[in-house]
Amino acid sequence: MFKRIVSGIRSIGHRVIESIWRLGLASRFFMLVLLKSGTSFRRFGLVVRELYYSGVLSLIIIVVSGLFVGMVLGLQGYETLQKYGSESAVGTLVALSLVRELGPVVAALLFASRAGSAITAEIGLMKATEQLEAMALMAVDPIARIVAPRFWAGVISMPLLAAIFSVMGIYGGHLVTVIFIGVDEGSYWSQMQSAVDFRFDILNGFIKSCFFGVAVTAIAVFEGYNAPPTAEGVSGATTRTVVTSSLVILGLDFILTAFMFRGVS
């Protein structure tokens, strides 16, 4: 019995030490990526290429999900607001939910599972097939040539995708409430405009999505670069990218929201 407790404590301790070690490794890797980002900006074509994979290819899922989330928000918001006779405020509800929270957060979650996992799998496979080592032996730094462009492409795509998501959501809400249900078009927009503030709502949402973009792509490239060079290693790393970045997005969202909207409104 005593032995089992001791070994239990020991295994917990081992896991804690392991994750601290991993966190340190990830931070060092992150610094390394930032330090070696010069190439990405000198040869912006590399980033543009990756923008296609992380941005353009995520566009469809972002547009469709944004539209549906906005439609559901419109429908649910209308049902609730109608009870208090203030269904004209539905535009405010849709816009504020999207711009402040759902836009950045849901877009980031979708981005993590669409583009983040692809980045991890790609880098992990390049490592497993010795492509990264081959590159290093050709005197080309794989962090500068492979990792950094993917990182920056993700960081650039994320805020754009979040903005597209919010706009699609607002038009989705417009479609359901104004066109199908018949809420007054003028009050949909005007209530929204008087409630949504550029600096507090839109800019803060934008800042949030920038943070999420950095977090998701940093996790994705780290997991890919440190994946064990086997089939199971790469698939495990891909799963870890999605799980870790989802948790980090939600945690980070709470922290950022607490900082941004504390004491206001």
Partner: peptide, 29 residues
């Protein structure tokens, strides 16, 4: 062709940001 799609993507993204600022956020007021 890839450059074209990326350009389009960036354009849509910037347009979305503009819509958010102008039409939703009423920045011009």
């Amino acid at each position: 062709a890839l450059d074209f799609w990326v350009g389009l993507f960036v354009l849509i993204g910037i347009a979305a940001t503009m819509i958010l600022s102008m039409k939703v956020g009423n920045l011009n007021v």
